[in-house]
Design a protein around this nucleic acid. Sequence first.
DNA 1: GTTGAACCGGAGGGGTACCTCCGCTACAGT
DNA 2: ACTGTAGCGGAGGTACCCCTCCGGTTCAAC
Lengths: 192, 192
Amino acid sequence: MPAQQFPISEIVAAQRPARKDAARNYDALLTAAREAFAEHGSEASLEDIARRAGVGIGTLYRNFPTRRSLFESVYADEVNALCRSAVEFAGLDPWEAVTAWLERFAGYMVTKRAVREALEGESEIFQACRDSLYAAGGPLFERAQRAGAARTDMEFGDLLRLVAGITATAFTDDAQRDRVLAIALDGVRAGR
Amino acid sequence: MPAQQFPISEIVAAQRPARKDAARNYDALLTAAREAFAEHGSEASLEDIARRAGVGIGTLYRNFPTRRSLFESVYADEVNALCRSAVEFAGLDPWEAVTAWLERFAGYMVTKRAVREALEGESEIFQACRDSLYAAGGPLFERAQRAGAARTDMEFGDLLRLVAGITATAFTDDAQRDRVLAIALDGVRAGR
DNA sequence: GTTGAACCGGAGGGGTACCTCCGCTACAGT
DNA sequence: ACTGTAGCGGAGGTACCCCTCCGGTTCAAC
């Protein structure tokens, strides 16, 4: 058993089928879906996803009976990877740790065009994703608060929305994105 | 001629048809489209928009030959109203003026779910909208910069993206939205 | 190598969206 | 009031998407 588990980890692992060909198709579908969702939002065509994955539409439906279940799996997969990465930053300076993790949060969320919906989804899996994110990033932020590096009149949830909102926006170039993100984080740092 | 004109103003006025019944339909379509775009993003069904407006699909297509032209008109309409409102705030304290206008920006942009696309659209009208927004809000921001109330290592465009990103995000309640927006604006205020 | 269970692809029925086209309606100018 | 014209609605062809179902295929356990 690993040092730290997140609510989402087991769920993700349990989904993948055992048989070799089935597992290959499952992976191809997740990859194709991640691309399609990133490109067209959560309304992407399921038949297109199956085509991208080089798989029949029937195979898609066998693995993911509903559009929502497919989206949940893609999202859970990304959240899982993101949570596992939080452990790496535990040793850094408190403020550095928060910004480093948020940087990764901003990058990993390929599905960001649809994250807003997910952040308030009601299903069990979205709930587990939220819990996992809080379990992974929350301690980093609270440590920064205790160290006097982050303002204390806000919650970790506020910070996630702030970063999610900014990174979901289209910028003229990456430099502008980083500039704007840094400005917003200055607001978090300031304290008051 | 009004005291101040924005590039978008004439374009908006020129679109509306002259005949009475046609003008009524035009208005109904704009209203219905504003709602539908706010609800489903810029991919909203055109037939649904016509239904909401109580108008035949043919009438929609006569007024707006393409989906893009309809979206442009809705967007231009909102930008126009927003720009005209900037004049009201010219008398306030420099920082107050900026935040008051941004508050309205955040509220008016009912089409916000799709604003990101519009902020980098290539068409003539999107260009005019951008120019209008800069002409309306830019001076407020630069005045705040000269007064030492806003940091000078950023541009007005950065500020717009920042606010647009945050307000396009779903929050659990309005209080959280205001809290997050205030935090981000603290970053703008801080100076450095 | 055999075998049966699990898995596969994609045809096809039903639905919805896009857009065009044309017979009908209602406005506005005389 | 008359009338020509600008404007109207919606039927219908085409295309795509959703989802089910089933005959054929591939895996893995023996």
